[in-house]
Simulated scan of single mutants.
Amino acid sequence: MSATRPVRFAALGDSLTEGVGDPVGEAWRGWAALLAAGLGPGEVPVEFRNFAVSGAQSHDVLDRQLPAALAFRPDVVSVVVGVNDTLRCTFDLHAVAARLDEVYARCTARGAVLLTACLPDPGTMLGLPAALGRPLARRQRGVNAVVHALSERYGAVHVHVAEGDWVADRAMWSADRLHPGERGHRFLAARFHAGLAATGRELGAPPSLTPEQPPPTRSAGVLWLATAGTGWVARRCTDLLPQLLGLAAQELRHLARGTSARLDLRAAQAVSAALAGLSTGVAQVVDVA
């Protein structure tokens, strides 16, 4: 890469990448913007475009965000999506896998460095009862397994943040408990920077882990649930709740019979089938238990 040519970074995904939870003035900043500041070594400038949109699913990334991102001719592309897919009654792991395969393939075919991540399941973050949370957790673990396998296939810089101390650290999260706060966004940016550095890529300074704003208080979380959070939950309930209640009833039946392992096995088989259904072979890394 010429020293005079800017490093171009395109970020694709949903509200996490849009920066929700990390407000700066009247706009969101987020981990991708924090990472962008450290992508240019020395005096090399960085051109950053954030195509992520709150609520986006994998089909939105493929159909809407990807064409605009490729027209930007990026050197680095992040694709972090899938949580919203799991929160819909139309969830189809096969379709998610096929879309991500195409997105990753088209990005890397242009020579871009691909960034991906596995994420915590929303049921855990919302503190749902086990019967409701476990079906959502299986869905998210399925998406994570697909992302992990496809990331290996395409040589992505993959950050595994589905688990770990940061998930339980209240200071890492915004008032809604679904999106990282400033500290969490800085953590993600630093993890991606370290992953890129490990490939030998020449970079600028890593993002600072020190937040500029204090973490949200517990009262802020209560206020969010009473205002914006109520609308968020209502919108999802309209779409997902009837199906989720059915899944919860199934969960309780298997729990009573001592056969919950069958549901985990089915989830693992769904991941294997989704990966096997892709046009070319993919290493089947399945971790959904």
Results as ranks from 00 to 15, higher is better:
residue 1 M to I: 14
residue 2 S to A: 13
residue 2 S to G: 14
residue 21 G to Q: 05
residue 24 V to N: 08
residue 27 A to C: 10
residue 27 A to S: 12
residue 27 A to D: 14
residue 33 A to W: 07
residue 36 A to W: 03
residue 39 L to Y: 00
residue 44 V to I: 14
residue 49 R to G: 02
residue 54 S to L: 06
residue 55 G to Y: 04
residue 56 A to F: 07
residue 59 H to W: 10
residue 63 D to I: 10
residue 64 R to F: 05
residue 65 Q to F: 02
residue 67 P to S: 04
residue 70 L to R: 05
residue 70 L to K: 01
residue 73 R to C: 08
residue 78 S to T: 05
residue 80 V to W: 00
residue 82 G to C: 03
residue 87 L to M: 15
residue 87 L to E: 10
residue 87 L to A: 08
residue 96 V to F: 14
residue 99 R to H: 13
residue 99 R to Q: 11
residue 100 L to R: 01
residue 101 D to W: 04
residue 101 D to S: 08
residue 101 D to N: 09
residue 102 E to N: 01
residue 108 T to Y: 02
residue 108 T to E: 01
residue 114 L to F: 04
residue 115 L to H: 02
residue 119 L to K: 00
residue 120 P to T: 05
residue 125 M to Q: 15
residue 125 M to V: 10
residue 126 L to D: 09
residue 127 G to H: 01
residue 129 P to A: 03
residue 130 A to F: 11
residue 133 G to D: 13
residue 146 V to G: 00
residue 147 V to F: 04
residue 148 H to E: 12
residue 150 L to N: 02
residue 158 H to Q: 10
residue 161 V to G: 13
residue 162 A to C: 10
residue 164 G to Y: 09
residue 164 G to L: 07
residue 175 A to S: 12
residue 175 A to M: 12
residue 177 R to N: 09
residue 182 E to G: 06
residue 184 G to D: 08
residue 185 H to T: 04
residue 190 A to I: 09
residue 191 R to C: 09
residue 194 A to M: 05
residue 195 G to E: 02
residue 198 A to T: 08
residue 201 R to Q: 09
residue 202 E to T: 15
residue 202 E to P: 12
residue 204 G to C: 09
residue 211 P to A: 07
residue 212 E to F: 06
residue 214 P to T: 06
residue 216 P to S: 08
residue 218 R to M: 13
residue 222 V to W: 14
residue 223 L to T: 13
residue 227 T to G: 11
residue 227 T to M: 12
residue 228 A to Y: 12
residue 231 G to C: 12
residue 234 A to I: 14
residue 236 R to H: 08
residue 238 T to R: 15
residue 240 L to G: 03
residue 244 L to P: 01
residue 249 A to E: 13
residue 249 A to Q: 10
residue 255 L to Q: 14
residue 258 G to E: 00
residue 262 R to L: 15
residue 270 A to K: 04
residue 274 A to D: 06
residue 276 A to T: 13
residue 279 S to P: 11
residue 282 V to K: 00
residue 283 A to W: 08
residue 283 A to K: 11
residue 285 V to L: 13
residue 287 D to Y: 10
residue 287 D to E: 14
residue 289 A to Q: 15
